[in-house]
Write a protein that binds this DNA or RNA. Structure first.
Lengths: 363, 363
DNA sequence: CTGAAAGCGCTAACAC
DNA sequence: GTGTTAGCGCTTTCAG
């Protein structure tokens, strides 16, 4: 067979450049100890032969795979997609490749933890938004590589996440500052096995109410399942039919908040006139929907996770329990407004809870 | 150092099981020629040692990397995300890993085609939605591995895509069947370097009009840039201010169509009463927005691409110019309606072109 | 500054 | 059925 059938090896490049394979290796890896003249010859030979190094062979001897693996429960998602986009450039800059373990269901998950294919085939593992069992985490612990938990705080392990408590605190304060006192909270009832920072956000909400002297009322905290519109309708209905219905609603996730907006719009219930709605995430659809929200940046999270991964790969004896906590910020849009509608006298705005009567409007 | 510090190798497993490394290799790869008793011992030893095979070492000798690479311009995207979700299970079933080359800009792109990191490090490459130059395609041609173009027809190369012409034809017929005769078409002016099947969809639109005897009118074909709402507003404005404005609008992409809906809603222009709007894709937001659309399934595309990749990897002498064309189907929702509003007499619905006056309605 | 030699962990002939 | 042997294509001592 002609040599074109087979990938050229370093030996081929070496022969063409009239040097040894070692020299080719040193040259291609940028060692300073190679003379300019030899470097020139080697680089030309490599180019002419279309030589590409085999990571496999290299990693066999170095022990490094040149790969960072991510474990994700979903790929068609704003959060994961954005995080991977943040991660990508970091890895490229470090000369690392990205392998994706897509584990959408329990069967795939069991298989992953059973075989742990990342072992020996990656230099670090990023775990996205999984609510792992202690046993699963333990399996990852003896993977002999840095494992970084993304978008969740993992006790005793490296992790990158946003400050959900502070975010929810700030969001709730925003509603309080607008004069609202009856503030509902809509939780996302997640698919089990995944984590959505639900508890932290609820904590921040409660903390803000407490520091403002507003009594907590469990009736104001309801839940709905993302994607099941019926549960959204029910949850909203439950809130609005309370003796003292809320005048503002903090929804744990933008996607859910948008479903709320759509439900309210359908029933002719004006936002923000009769109910202010605040989301969390700054998902793309929040902008579409004009939803006020607490923004987090998944891209930043991905980038930070990538940088942490690189750092931990480089210094194997580094602090493997480092936590990187990213900030959030409020983005006020059209879905939140001061308690009293402009048609009422603004001076009253610190008055008692409204009974929810705003401007009536037909479809 | 204790052996726990280092990954166990096949030799370790072999020693523990009291057999040779070859036997371990054969056992772990499921060769039938291994006796039940030995298989048992080997598997136990492997489990006890937490042995994981090194792909690197294996691929060094087999020449197969066990990796399928994808080249994507974006990751935070409904299409790419869904396609990867379709691809994932196929690869897992075949024991292949997924590596992602995320190439968001021209610099990264130049670098990718310069170094071609996939060379020697993957068994197949899936190219997503890139509008490659002939030179770039040629580079991929001599990659010595199957290259599959996803979501585009690549002449003389393997590809997987939906039938955009037929889809747009069907969509336009839907509008024609509803009685519309003045039908606008909104093109997505893409970021250059990416492909969005724009021309094919326009072709289908024209074909449907022609076969229905409706004269083509270039004034009805306008363009807008996704993400730049100003361009959407302008395009829609241009259409509506025509002497004979359209009564229906076919928008090349759902995301753009949703921007159109939002523009129209803002200006109090009722959909579908005064303008029917039809999208293309069946993007998640189409459901949110109640947008009628021509559905394609990126998941199916990803799955088909994965299966094609596996097939081409298995049979190196297979037909490397295979095209897989997937169907689309119409999903009617609330954004398209018969030409005449219900308030008019239904019998008139086949009458002359309306001048666009529907039910007047304040906000 | 460069070359020779050894070996990373595995698989594929080939013996037995 | 199972063991032995010889590399796969690199990097890394170690000489010089």
């Amino acid at each position: 067979m002609s040599p074109a059938q087979r990938h050229p090896t370093m030996a081929d490049v070496a022969e063409r450049a009239g040097v040894s394979a070692s020299t080719v290796s040193r040259t291609l890896r940028g060692y300073a100890s190679v003379s300019a003249e030899v470097r020139e010859r080697v680089e030309r030979a490599a180019r002419e032969l279309n030589f590409a190094i085999s990571r496999q062979a290299a990693s066999l001897v170095t022990g490094k795979t040149g790969v960072v693996a991510v474990l994700v429960p979903i790929l068609n998602s704003w959060f994961v997609g954005s995080a991977l986009e943040g991660l990508g450039p970091v890895l490229r800059a470090a000369g690392l490749e990205l392998v994706v373990y897509y584990v959408p269901d329990m069967a795939a998950r069991a298989d992953f933890f059973e075989r742990l294919p990342a072992r020996r085939n990656a230099d670090a593992l990023l775990v996205f938004s999984f609510d792992l069992t202690e046993e699963e985490s333990a399996r990852l612990d003896d993977l002999q590589m840095p494992v970084i938990y993304v978008s969740q705080h993992a006790e005793g392990r490296a992790s990158v996440y946003v400050d959900d408590v502070a975010g929810a605190l700030g969001g709730t304060r925003h509603l309080l500052n607008l004069g609202h006192r009856r503030i509902g909270f809509l939780r996302a009832i997640g698919v089990s096995g995944f984590t959505f920072s639900s508890n932290e956000r609820l904590t921040g909400y409660r903390q803000a109410l407490t520091e403002a002297g507003v009594p907590l009322d469990d009736d104001l905290v309801v839940g709905a399942v993302l994607g099941q519109d019926r549960t959204v309708v029910e949850a909203v209905g439950r809130l609005l039919s309370l003796q003292q219905p809320p005048t503002a609603l903090f929804v744990e996730q933008d996607e859910l908040a948008v479903a709320v907006l759509s439900t309210l719009r359908t029933s002719g219930f004006d936002v923000p006139e009769r109910l202010s709605v605040l989301g969390f995430d700054d998902h793309d659809i929040a902008r579409w929907a004009g939803l006020s929200t607490i923004a987090q940046s998944p891209t930043d999270i991905g980038r930070a996770a990538g940088e942490l991964a690189c750092a931990l790969i480089e210094t194997p004896d580094a602090d493997r329990e480092r936590h990187i906590v990213l900030p959030t910020h409020l983005i006020p849009r059209a879905s939140t407004a001061p308690l009293m509608p402009p048609s009422a006298t603004p001076e009253e705005s610190r008055g008692a809870a409204s009974d929810g009567r705003g401007t009536a409007s037909g479809a």
